[in-house]
């Protein structure tokens, strides 16, 4: 069985922060095509604040996620603050005995993040939102675990589903959020939330991969 140490897992959160910082302009450009063009800037603001706060503490992986969630909740408004704030806070609170995180614990975290989101948004797969990445990612990961694949393979399956889900938003008409008011005009471009969600899950998978140990 494979797992990673929660205690030494902060590099995963740092990788997530870095991918948002590196893709700030890209995310704002995508958003600018059918939204108000501030997605990259907003996300970068929250994730960079988190980076600063984490530098002043010696946090574990789950504590890092909790800090990230808290900052998005209290500092970032709009739609992305509450969405990502909920995901990360719920994920951080989902593992009860967090010394080592295996694929079952990680699946529980994904499930908790999605359950938290269900309380605040109604978007489904096909609505051109980050749900088009998050739900297929969870399904791919849980399917892999059910089929007896190991953590590493399950993460690979998850990343493939993320990319496919993100790319599928190009062909969709937005049915949720501000871009939904554009109707047909929203077709033909990526959804910015799906793009950032894909980046974050990719960074998470890569970060976990580097820390996985056979136990």
């Amino acid at each position: 069985m494979q797992a990673f140490s929660n205690e030494r897992g902060l590099p995963i959160v740092e990788a997530m922060i870095r991918t948002i910082q590196d893709n700030k302009t890209h995310l704002s450009e995508i958003d600018g095509m059918i939204g108000d063009g501030d997605h990259g800037t907003n996300m970068n603001k929250g994730f960079t604040l988190c980076e600063e706060r984490l530098q002043a503490m010696d946090a574990s992986f789950l504590e890092g996620l909790q800090v990230l969630g808290d900052i998005l909740f209290s500092e970032i408004g709009g739609s992305m603050g509450p969405i990502y704030g909920t995901i990360f806070m719920e994920m951080a609170g989902a593992v009860k005995t967090p010394s080592r995180i295996d694929e079952h614990a990680f699946l529980a975290m994904l499930e908790a993040g999605i359950a938290g989101l269900d309380e605040i948004i109604e978007a489904k797969v096909g609505d051109k939102t980050l749900m088009d990445v998050l739900l297929p990612a969870r399904d791919a990961f849980s399917g892999a675990v059910r089929d007896g694949k190991d953590f590493r393979q399950a993460l690979d399956d998850m990343v493939q589903a993320c990319v496919a889900g993100r790319d599928a938003t190009v062909g969709m008409v937005a049915r949720f959020g501000r871009s939904s008011r554009l109707g047909e005009r929203s077709r033909g471009v990526l959804d910015a939330g799906a793009a950032s969600c894909c980046l974050l899950l990719q960074a998470m998978a890569k970060g976990i991969n580097e820390l996985l140990e056979d136990v």
């Binding site: 501030d38 970032i76 408004g77 709009g78 739609s79 509450p82």
Partner: peptide, 12 residues
């Protein structure tokens, strides 16, 4: 109070 044309935070 939110940013220009953007919802206030849940914390606010």
């Amino acid at each position: 109070v939110g940013e220009v044309f953007s919802s206030p935070t849940a914390g606010a």
